[in-house]
Amino acid sequence: MTVPESLSDPRTSKGPELGELAIVQDVEAGLIRLLAPNASAMTLDGTNSYLIYGTDGSAILLDPGPDSPTHLARISEVARERGLAIRAICLTHHHQDHSEAAFTLASTLGVEVFAHPESFDKLSFRRLKLSGRISISGISLEVIPTPGHCGDHLSFLLASGVLLTGDHVLGRGTSVVAYPDGNLGQYLDSLNRVSEVDFTRLAPGHGPVMDKGLGEEVISYYVAHRKARLDQLVEAILLNPQVTGEELVEIVYGHQLSEKIRWAALASTMAALRYLQDSGVVNQGEDGGFELIR
């Protein structure tokens, strides 16, 4: 099975192709995107870090990304060239491709890390309040909880209207909602929440920045894509009672998956199955197989 052909990705043939994303981009006055050199099947072009800055030169570094000397040197160089001083580090979520360099860099710069209250257990950081507008080093951000990709995921709306979405909405591909860290019910709720935000652009954690029109189309596509996957799973379980999660991956995604992508497909499938269980649609037997609740 594949996603129905009627679900066409609105980003097709728009923007730079995979591997051609600019390393440094001035998104608008006060916002610079910097691409980390950690491209992979899971991170796509690599992780986008962002320098958010005010007229006085104070800057927030959002998602410093991997602990890559090349990437961190580039961030430092761009900040120096633009006359910016990084006063704080802020995170959309705890995943390593976004946060690995955060605490080492914060120590080097003598600044604090701001994150979701539940992002880290044993590290010292500033816990963000989970709604409303805040000011960090004189820069205004609206915190928007967007759990689903993981429980501590946050998006940030700038005063200009740019919405920094981390891994919630991507510039290409779809976000992995991987059980048990990911929760599909929360993810769908978060997509609905973001669809109601009056943004001007979406600045994602991976892939190209999108304008308002394309961003709105992508959010609608994401919802339709998830619902199509759920329908596929229900159909597969109807035709194959007591089917396992691993067997469903073969049925829905096919056999041509690398080991790493297969793990992501299985974790996403299990998150969808948990959503169907919580919705009273399917049940998991003692042997691990799934069946429809009639």
Rank of each mutant, 00 (worst) to 15 (best):
L230I: 07
G245Y: 00
V218F: 11
G215D: 07
G215K: 04
H225L: 13
L239A: 14
G245M: 00
E250W: 06
M210F: 07
L239E: 14
V243M: 04
L233S: 14
V234H: 02
A224E: 15
I251F: 05
V249T: 00
V209Y: 02
P241N: 05
G254M: 01
G207R: 00
E247K: 03
E246P: 00
E235R: 13
L230A: 08
Q242P: 04
M210D: 10
A236H: 04
G213Y: 11
T244N: 00
R229Q: 15
G213T: 11
K227V: 11
L248V: 08
Y221R: 07
P241C: 08
V223H: 12
V252P: 02
E216W: 10
G207F: 04
E217G: 01
V234F: 10
P241A: 05
M210R: 07
D231V: 10
Q232V: 06
R226E: 15
N240A: 06
E247D: 08
E250R: 09
I237D: 04
S220G: 10
P208R: 02
I237N: 05
A228E: 13
L233P: 05
L230C: 08
L239K: 12
A228K: 12
L230K: 07
G245V: 00
K212V: 12
E216Y: 07
G254P: 00
I251L: 04
I251N: 03
G245D: 01
E250Q: 12
E216Q: 15
E247R: 10
D211W: 07
G254L: 02
Y253P: 00
T244L: 00
A228W: 11
L239Y: 09
V223P: 11
